[in-house]
């Protein structure tokens, strides 16, 4: 390249850069038709008709994957590029490791997670008849640890729990989210719905303000998704770790300048149930990658 051509090219680049800055107010919307296939074999439903209970609110539902940048989307297509899978490996070791006074591991009762946990995540949170309450996967894990294994309960937002959740979630990947909203779970579901539409904090923002009314638009640099939880636990590029759904809720509520609810609380369990049900029909996708 001669100097004249080089200068001209640099000049063009400078103009292009200036134009990019100048037109920063205009964002591109997401490619809503983009397809996610993980490891070349597991097809993930990232766009589908909204469940009946969202009639009048949303026509279609989308996985958060749809709204992420190309490179983030691509990384999730191959588990070797998905940092969330490192935590699944850690949890697999924990699954097989004896812990507590009863000399048991998860595997002692449940055998191979690939078989016993297949389809489990797709229906959680759900009503546990024996316990007489709605339970999350994390609550069931701790119940096993304390009542069957004689081991300490794990911190609900801690790394061990989030990793175990990811291992269990992985066994349902590609299956449709199918959370029950009627029967004995209905009152918790209604409570979660009430929370979803309540404007909290000094900024007076509800979940719906961003994730129902304004998804696929930008608040400053944030490209808003529908706030679906089918991809949880998520490996976030922002904090370089696996994040559970309650931890994520807490961050969102905090950002409305509100007093947050407590991760592990019945409040967030109700919201977890309700938000999960808004994704009925999307595929279980976790562990996923988000920003």
């Amino acid at each position: 390249m001669n100097n004249k051509l080089l200068k001209s090219t640099l000049g063009t680049l400078a103009i292009a850069a200036a134009m990019t800055v100048g037109s920063s107010a205009v964002f591109a919307g997401a490619d809503l038709d983009k397809k996610l296939v993980i490891n070349g074999e597991t097809e993930i439903v990232t766009r589908t008709a909204a469940p009946a209970h969202l009639d009048g609110a949303l026509d279609e539902i989308f996985s958060g994957w749809i709204f992420r940048k190309d490179e983030t989307q691509t990384a999730q297509m191959d588990d070797f590029d998905n940092p969330g899978m490192i935590f699944v490996d850690i949890a697999q070791d924990a699954w097989n490791k004896v812990d507590g006074s009863e000399g048991k591991s998860c595997a002692s009762c449940h055998g191979a997670a690939e078989e016993s946990m297949a389809g489990v995540k797709a229906t959680y949170p759900k009503w546990n008849e024996a316990a007489g309450e709605v339970r999350s996967i994390d609550m069931e894990v701790n119940n096993c640890r304390t009542t069957r294994m004689g081991a300490d309960a794990w911190k609900l937002t801690g790394g061990k729990m989030t990793a175990m959740n990811a291992l269990i979630t992985l066994q349902s990947r590609g299956m449709p989210v199918n959370v029950a909203i009627d029967g004995p779970a209905q009152s918790m579901w209604e409570r979660g719905k009430e929370m979803y539409y309540t404007k909290t904090g000094q900024l007076e923002m509800s979940c719906a303000n961003c994730h129902e009314d304004n998804y696929d638009l930008h608040i400053r640099a944030d490209h808003l998704s529908q706030g679906q939880t089918n991809g949880f636990p998520v490996y976030r590029l922002k904090n370089a770790k696996l994040n559970g759904v309650h931890a994520r809720f807490k961050g969102c509520v905090r950002d409305t300048r509100a007093q947050t609810y407590k991760p592990g609380s019945e409040d967030f369990l109700a919201l977890e149930l309700y938000v999960a049900s808004r994704g009925n029909g999307l595929s279980v996708e976790g562990p996923s990658i988000r920003n």
């Binding site: 309540t198 404007k199 909290t200 904090g201 000094q202 900024l203 007076e204 923002m205 303000n209 009314d213 304004n214 807490k250 509520v253 905090r254 950002d255 409305t256 300048r257 509100a258 007093q259 947050t260």
Partner: peptide, 20 residues
Amino acid sequence: FMPSFYRVDGYIRPGKRYTG
């Protein structure tokens, strides 16, 4: 959807800035 920029009452679960 626009926050009230000069108001101090009537909020649900008002927080201490962005501390949660």
